[in-house]
Nucleic acid binder design. Structure first.
Length: 640
RNA sequence: GCCAUCAUAGCUCAGUGGUAGAGCAACUGAUUCGUAAUCAGUAGAUCGUGGGUUCAAGUCCCGCUGAUGGCUCCA
């Protein structure tokens, strides 16, 4: 009996019935057979030794494919679980999936794993790999599966089996002395794993729910070669070097103080200077784009927060109230109610709309101590917030403008790649379905008009409205959420916002909350990591360092310094009694974009030598010519 | 909040029950130097904090504060 196999390029070929993907690959080429890790048969991912019985389409997956990585990592997690079970037979296994970078496995073990344990487990894994067990798939009935895992005492697996849909084919994989419930597919055998490393241990709740028992999780990663593992570990190292917390300290940009409290940022002078530049730019552009900049209080009475609904749905993130004249006041977690007050201070006509209030508004939110993380997750931060209040017919156009404005901002800071998500109505929501549909459609239209590619996150909207989020990709290709643009059905209703329409009747305006950079703290953290602390000229706290070669050149250096300052270049001079190499090293470590080096030659020719950070000597310039170059670079916000 | 790890000089780190150490930074002196570290010297710590065990605690135990990695990825 012959069957027909269709390949991704559309070509077809006949094979004996019962042939496996591996055998087909072997016929094509030995190299291919060696490289593939799994296959897709029609719409189902299968093991390489799966017997093909019918005409099918076939795709091979290699490690470099996402599907292949998943299989590879998932298989490694099974090897790890087997190793753990060999050491600790009483441990119960929970789940062990592949994740974005590697895999983990959760274990129910009385005492947590130590780093020592990790080494032991790694050695045992290597033994399992050397023993080269087959990942043997068996399809079983529900009762058989329950029987097997009951005998093994694997309670978590039983829970999982009971939750599988009734029509699901249940499968188990046998790996030597280890049996696991698993849908598959897997590698053919354990020695396909060439290089692996266990990275960290942590606690993790069963199914991510804090009401459940805390399990012990081990994370790891694996690759088809030692070299790839090495490259990956180096990349981790590189990320660590540009960690904003480390650079924040090294470059003296910001700090946290135990005496003050967790998650409360102090911007040191250099960080403050950068922030000020960002804020100036932000304000200028907002005025240009038709926003009004407002300033509002940081606390407000409890009634305000009751009306807004924050005390109902956001109280978990709010700090306890303080009593002032017998009244409860809350420190603000958001700026919206205050902006709404300004809107409501007058009767508004449709002719005034859209009204756009912008504020660099500092807010305070309670974040659980364990989730705080440098500048990325803090308890007090400043949103670059705005509220756009418009008529329903203006909505779409306003969103188009907003998207354009957001992308302009992000690009100004050197981000070129974005991921855009549209989140739609969740299960719990306020407002009418039809209104949601209309608003969601407007957001969609705006994205289409802006020709921005986006993904839809079904049901991931906030309860008060659909939203668009923009994530930026940084230099290491990690994504960070910055811009969020949220439609709000709730607050205009709660606060009874209105405007007088063309028909001389009262209408309810639409309102959009938006933050472009997100929070200044978080955005600063992202910027630091994106640039690895090497800020572009327009943002660098010190733009130029003047370095005289010896004491004889101090006077000439000072003259240059004062001229630079006169031209509003942020410059410093190094008057230390050190050798030139040492001073250059210092300036390089401080990541100052340009160095001006002056000695006898420069004095004689009345010029300067310029050295660029990370690049080296640029040669000789006239001072005026160099300043022009700097001005152009600042103007263009050049990032390279 | 929960699990784990951690907190020693300004910074990075050593010190596993018996007299607190190093490198860098700082300061002083010498050196006056051409594109990523000149040499020598000086000073700097109630070992995060509060309690306990012990003849003796940086070190062992408990509380607190703060930091770090996780706690979303569904066999």
């Amino acid at each position: 009996m012959k069957i027909k196999i269709t390949f991704p390029d559309g070509s077809k070929k006949e094979y004996e019935k019962g042939i496996t993907p591996l055998q087909i690959a072997e016929e094509i080429s030995k190299g291919l057979a060696k490289e593939i890790v799994s296959a897709r048969l029609n719409d189902k991912e299968v093991d390489l030794n799966y017997k093909i019985m019918y005409d099918s389409s076939l795709i091979f997956y290699k490690f470099k494919d996402d599907e292949g990585k998943k299989v590879y990592w998932h298989s490694t997690s099974h090897i790890m679980a087997q190793a753990v079970k060999r050491f600790y037979p009483d441990v119960k296994v929970a789940i062990g999936p592949a994740i974005e970078n590697g895999f983990y496995y959760d274990f129910d073990k009385k005492t947590p794993f130590s780093d020592n344990d990790l080494e032991k487990i790694e050695e045992e894994m290597q033994r399992i790999i050397d023993e080269n067990f087959f990942f043997e798939r068996r399809e079983v009935t529900r009762n058989e599966a329950l029987e097997i895992f009951k005998n093994l005492g694997e309670d978590y697996k039983i829970e999982l089996i009971n939750e599988l849909p009734s029509e699901e084919q249940i499968s188990i994989y046998v790996l030597g002395d280890f049996v696991d419930l698993c849908k598959g597919p897997h590698l053919l055998s354990t020695n396909k794993v060439k290089a692996f490393k266990l990275l960290k241990v942590s606690g993790a709740y069963w199914r991510g729910d804090e009401k459940n028992k805390m399990l012990q999780r081990i994370y790891g990663i694996s690759f088809p070669s030692e070299k790839e593992l090495k490259t990956y570990l180096e990349k981790l190292n590189e990320a660590e070097k540009r960690d904003h917390r480390r650079l924040g300290k090294e470059l003296d940009l910001f700090g946290f103080y135990e005496e003050v409290g967790a998650g409360l940022v102090h911007w040191h002078p250099k960080g403050g200077l950068i922030r000020n530049i960002i804020e100036d730019f932000w304000k200028k552009e907002h005025y240009k784009a038709g926003y009004d900049i407002v300033y509002t209080p940081h606390i407000g009475k409890s009634n305000l927060w009751e009306t807004s609904g924050h005390l109902g749905f956001y109280s978990e993130n709010m700090y306890a109230p303080m009593k002032i004249d017998e009244q409860d006041y809350y420190i603000r977690p958001m700026n919206c109610p205050f902006h709404i007050m300004i809107y409501k201070s007058k009767l508004r006509s449709y002719r005034e709309l859209p009204i756009k209030y912008a504020e660099l508004g500092t807010v305070y939110r309670y974040e659980r101590s364990g989730v705080l993380h440098g500048l990325m997750r803090v308890r007090g931060f400043t949103q670059d917030d705005a509220h756009i209040i418009c008529t329903p017919s203006q909505l779409e156009n306003e969103v188009v403008k907003l998207l354009d404005f957001s992308i302009f901002f992000l690009k100004s800071f050197g981000f070129e790649n974005f991921e855009i998500f549209l989140s739609t109505r969740p299960d719990k929501f306020v407002g009418k379905k039809e209104d949601w549909d209309k608003a969601t459609q407007s957001l969609k239209n705006a994205l289409e008009i802006s020709k921005l590619p986006y993904k839809i996150d079904e049901g991931e909207g906030v309860f008060y409205g659909p939203k668009i989020d923009i994530k930026v990709k940084d230099a290491l290709n990690r994504s960070w959420q910055c811009t969020t643009l949220q439609f709000d059905f709730n607050l205009p209703e709660q606060f009874g916002m209105k405007y007088i329409g063309e028909d001389n009747k009262e209408h309810r305006p639409f309102m959009i909350h938006r933050a472009l950079l997100g929070s200044l703290e978080r955005f600063f953290g992202v910027l630091i990591e994106h640039y690895a602390g090497n800020f572009p000229l327009w943002l660098a706290p010190v733009q130029v360092k003047v370095i005289p070669i010896s004491e004889n050149h101090f006077e000439y250096g000072k003259k240059i310094l004062s001229y630079l300052k006169e031209k509003e270049i942020r410059a410093k001079i190094n008057l230390e009694n050190e050798k030139i190499g040492y001073k250059i090293r210092e300036a390089e470590n401080e990541k100052i974009p340009y160095m001006i080096i002056v000695g006898d030659k420069e004095i004689e020719n009345q010029n300067i030598s310029v050295r660029k950070h990370l690049k080296g000597d640029l040669g000789v310039f006239l001072l005026g010519e160099f300043i022009e170059k700097l001005k152009r670079e600042v103007q263009k916000k050049t990032t390279k």
